[in-house]
Design a protein around this nucleic acid. Sequence first.
RNA 1: GCGGACGUGGCGGAACUGGUAGACGCGCAGGUCUCAGAAGCCUGUGGCCGCAAGGCCGUGGAAGUUCGAUUCUUCUCGUCCGCACCA
Length: 823
Amino acid sequence: MDEKYFPQKVEKKWQQKWQESACFHTEPDADRPKFYQLEMLPYPSGNLHMGHVRNYAVGDALAWYKRLCGYNVLHPIGWDSFGQPAEDAAIKRGENPRLWTERNIQLMTGQLKRLGIGYDWERQIAAHRPDYYKFDQWFFLKMYERGLVYKKMSEVNWCETDQTTLSNEQASGGLCWRCGNPVIKKEIEQWFLKITDYADQLLDDMAEIEDGWPAHVIKRQRDWIGRSYGAYIDFEALGRARDASKSAGESKSAGENVGSSNHGIAGSATKIRVFTTRVDTIFGATALVLSPRHPFVSEVWDSLDSEIREKIEAIRAELAKPQRRDEELQKDGVYLDIKALNPFNQAEIPIWVGNYVMIEYGTGALMSVPAHDERDFEFAKRFGLEIKQVVEPIAGGITLEAGGIVPEIGDYKIPEASSGHNNGSKAGNNGKLPFTGYGKLINSAEWTGLTSEEALRKMAEYAREKGFGEPAVTFRLRDWGISRQRFWGAPIPIINCEKCGAVPVRYEDLPVELPEDAPITGTGESPLAKVPEFINTICPKCQSPARRETDTMDTFVDSSWYYYRYTDPKNSELPFDPEIARYWTPVDQYIGGDDHAVMHLIYARFWTKFMRDIGLVDFNEPFRRLLTQGMVVGETFFDDSGGKRQYFPPDSVIVKRDNKGRILSAETKDGKSLKYAIERMSKSKGNGVDPDEMIEAFGSDATRLFVLFAAPVENELVWHESGIDGAVRFLQRVWKLVYRWHNVFQGFSYEGSLPSNNDNPVVRRLRRKTHQTIQRVTAALESLQFNTPVAALMELCNAIYDSNLEPEKADAEEIFAMYEAVS
RNA sequence: GCGGACGUGGCGGAACUGGUAGACGCGCAGGUCUCAGAAGCCUGUGGCCGCAAGGCCGUGGAAGUUCGAUUCUUCUCGUCCGCACCA
C-alpha cells in the first residue's frame, strides 16, 4: 500500500478484481430481499457525458448502500441503441448504422467500466439486436390481437429537420423533442397504439406511486392525460340558409344573416355531436363551431360556396404551419351558411368553422357560449355573434367545493373547478362577461334558478333520457403514433397483401430482421421501401406475393419494457419468463432525467398495464420510486453582437473575477469582450467536460464523489473544475488515515462491543460521532439525499483528525464501511 | 394568459415533525513549511460598530399566529419550470 493516494492505480486494481469475480452479478435468491436499482439506459452516442456520470453515480451509490444493507441487488445496464443519430452518421459519413452503433457500445462500455459503476454486465441488452427487437414485434402482435393497434390516415406531427413523424408526447409544445425545431402537421397514414384505452388507469393508478415519485412528474402526467367530465350533446344540422347559386360572390358578415330560412339539405338528419364541460351554459350557445377537418364539413362540401371553401382551406393551411410558441393564433372562422338546432331550447344557431377547434379533442366540434367562455367570447366579438348570458355569479362566488371535490351520480361526475374557470369572484363581481365561473342559471327556461352544479348533472341526465346526448368523459391524451419513416428501428411486423389487406406476421416468423443496409437519405421516405429483398414477401394468409410494411417503430417502444428484459435477457421464446420477473420486478428505484416525465415514463406505464392484462406481470406500476436528477450545466462564453451566437471554449477566454470569485469580465485573447451564461453542457458551446479526462486527472471516485456532493440530485449542477479539489482532498485524507492504521487493524480482532461509557473522553466523543454519522448517512440515503451524507462523512473524517490519533479500532472500521457505502 | 415550484453568505448548499441560522465544501484572507512555487497543514471568513470583550441587524419584502418562525397563515415582489386555444 502506498503512502500517497494514487486513485488511478487503486481504481484500476479494484475494477479488475470486480471484472474477474463478476461480483455484481446476481441471481434470484428466495431467501434474501431483492432490490431492483435501475437507471435510464443510455443511447450509444459514442461518449459518456457528465449527465450520465451523475445519473449512474447516484444509482451506484444506492446500489452499494442497499447491498451493504443485505439486499440482493439487481443493477443492470443496456443500450437504447435504435435511433436517429446512427442514421445521421450514415448520411454524413457513409457509415453503416449497425457498425457505428456497435463501436459506440464498445467505447462507452469501456468508459462505464473506468468509471467503476457496479453493473451486472452479463445482463446487458441492446435494442438494435434481433434477439431484443424480436419482442418489440411480439408485443406489437399481442396488442394487435387485443385490438390495441390500428392504422389510420391522420394529421400527424412532422419534423422537417428530422424528416419523420413524432408522437404527441414528442412534439409537446409544438417543438421536436430531438432537435427543438417547430413541428408541422402532415397528413400521413400510420400505426397507432391505443394508449387512450388505458387513460383512466394511467390516471387513477398514480395513487399507488404518488409517494415515490416527484410531485412535478405526477402533475405533468395528470395534466398530459387531462381527463374532463362533461357531456355529449347532439345538435341537428338544419340545412342551407340560402341557395348556393344566389349567394356566390356576395360577401357578408355572417352574424347579420342568421335566422332567415331553412331549406333542408338532402337527407339532412345529420347530427353534430359536441362535447362540453358546461352543459349548464347551453342556453347561451349562440353558434356551433367545427374544426376545419370535421366530417360534417366534407359532407356538405359540395354545397358550400366557393368563397367559403376557400376560406376553410386557408384556415387549414394556416393550421398546418409550424406554430410560434409564444403567440396565440388569432381567432378566425367562417360561417357555413347552415344552421343547427339546440336540442334544449330549439334555438336555431349558425354553424361555423373555427380555427380554434381541434379535430382531435372531444368530437372536433363545440357549442360556442360567448358569455361564459373566453375563447368563444373572443370569437363572437370578432364576428359579431350574439352574446347571451345564462349564468350569473352567486354572492360569495364558488359554488363547487373548493379544491375540486367531485360529486358523482352513476358514471357522471361534476367537473372540478379547474383552470380556466375562475370561480365567481373575479369575473363575477363587476358583472363583466365572459363570466367563466360557476353560478346560478338565468334565461334558461325550466332550468333557471338551478346552480351550475345541479344543472350540470340534471341537464346531462335529461339529454340522455331524451336521447340527444349523454354524460361523457374525454381526455387530452391521444393515441400513440408509432410509425417512423426510418431505417434504424424495429420493423413493424405487418405484411400488406392486395387481397387480405394488412396481415400480421406470424409469431414463428419473428423477428422480421432489418436488412444489413439500406439507402439512407434522410428525405422522409422509409429507407426500407428501397430494399426489394426486404419488402417482397408472401402473404401469410393467402400465399400470394405481398409487401412488407416499411415503417419502423418509434424507439420509445424499445424502452417501454427493457427493464423487464434484464431479468431474463437471454430468453428466446418470450420477452422474459414471468416467474423470474416476479422475483425482481417491479423496479424499486428508477433514476433518470425529467425530460422523460411524459414520454418514456407514460409509455412504460402503459406497457406495464398491457403486460399485466396478458398475464406477464401481476402489478399495475413498473416503478415504485422515481428520482429525477437535474442537468449538469457549465459556464459558457459567447458573443452575440453579430446576431448569431458564437461560443468560445472556456480555455480560450480570459476571465477576470473579483476577490470573491465572481466574474467581472470575460474576453477573448485578442481583447474582444464576451458575454457569459450558465447553460447545458454541450460540445458546440465548448463547456462540455469529458468524463475520461476527469477520471484521468482526479480519479473516478473523486469525480463521482464531487458529483454527488456538489448539489442535491434533483437540482441543476453547475460544473466548476475547482469544486472537485474538495473531493480529492477528502479522499486523500481518508487514504492517509487508512494507510496509517491498516497495520494496526490487521492483528486486531474485536469481540463484543466496547462499553458505551468508555472513560476516555476522546474515545467517547469519537464513537458518538461515528454513530451519529451512520445514522445521518442512513437517513439521508433512505430519503435519496446524496450531498448531505457526503458532508456527514467529511465531518467524521475531520473529527478523527481532530481527535489527534489513537482512535480505537471499532471506529475506524466503521469509517471504512461507510466510505464504501457512498463511493 | 393558466398552472406549479422556489427565494438562506461571494458561490453550491445545510438546518429532522416550529427550538443556538449559515453544517459540509468551494472561493477568499492570513499564517506555517520552502531558495521559490505547488501540494499539505493551521487560523479566520453573513453584515455593521468595536483594539477587544461585546453589541446591534440578518433567511426577497410587508403584516400575522406563537414564549419562540428559514419553517405555519395572508398579501406582495422576484426567479425558474410546465402547458399553449383540450370546449
